[in-house]
Every structure is written in C-alpha cells, then in structure tokens.
Simulated scan of single mutants.
Amino acid sequence: MSNHKIYSMSVARVYPLYIAKAERKGRAKSEVDEIIRWLTGYTQEEFEEQLNKQTDFETFFKDAPFLNPSRTLIKGVVCGVRVEDIKEPTMQEIRYLDKLIDELAKGKSLDKILRGK
C-alpha cells in the first residue's frame, strides 16, 4: 500500500482494528483511547469528533492539539521498519501509534507504554 493511501485512510476505519487487537489480548478500548490521547493531545470528545468526521491520518496528526514530545522515545520495529528511522513525518506518527498499540497487545503496562507519562 502506498503512503498516500495510508495517509488518506480515515482513522475511523483503522480504529476498530486497534481495539480488536487490544481486546484479543485482554486489554480495553479505554486503554487504546488513552494511548491515542497521550500521543496526540486530543480530548476524548475531540478524538470522537475526528472519528465521526472520518478524518484521514494526515489531517488527524497535522491538526493534533499536542503531539507528545515523549513520542520520540518510541523505538522498535513495525512492519519491518524501525520507527525511529522513518523520515516522512506523517508515516512516523502513524507507526508510533502502531507501535504503542503493539506494546499494549503484548501486555506492557500503560505507564511504560506512555513512557512514564
């Protein structure tokens, strides 16, 4: 899938997949939401509004109220690529989120996932 297709995909389309991945491993939707709020600075209401508007990933991250500076502490491999080595900013934000959801599904504590908040 090209980057353009990923960027133009709505967050609402992928969000249920994040929840399903977490729930399969005994984690909760509320934890997925907390991760997204931590990463982007959206309130729960603002996040739900983005879902309702079918906002694409590029706009979702571009308009995020506060991209958490601690997100640069996120390291590791997603889809065969090291997230810290991704040069394109929007793709890196998407992969940061993917990596955090992976960590949740692998049983990491929220405190560790959120880099000590």
Rank of each mutant, 00 (worst) to 15 (best):
109 S>N: 07
38 W>E: 10
33 D>Q: 14
84 E>C: 03
23 E>T: 14
112 K>A: 14
104 L>K: 03
112 K>I: 07
100 L>P: 00
4 H>D: 12
60 F>R: 12
86 I>P: 08
114 L>G: 00
100 L>M: 15
35 I>F: 03
71 R>E: 14
111 D>A: 11
105 A>D: 01
46 E>K: 13
114 L>Q: 03
70 S>D: 15
74 I>K: 12
88 E>Q: 10
52 N>S: 13
7 Y>G: 08
29 K>R: 13
107 G>P: 02
75 K>I: 02
12 A>F: 01
81 V>L: 11
107 G>H: 05
39 L>N: 08
33 D>N: 09
11 V>C: 03
51 L>V: 03
1 M>S: 09
45 E>G: 07
104 L>R: 02
110 L>H: 12
65 P>I: 08
79 C>Y: 01
87 K>S: 07
6 I>V: 13
88 E>H: 01
12 A>L: 14
96 Y>W: 02
98 D>M: 08
13 R>K: 13
22 A>W: 01
96 Y>M: 01
80 G>L: 02
108 K>P: 00
25 K>W: 09
80 G>N: 06
103 E>T: 06
23 E>S: 13
82 R>C: 04
40 T>N: 07
39 L>T: 12
107 G>S: 14
107 G>C: 09
37 R>P: 00
19 I>D: 09
41 G>Y: 01
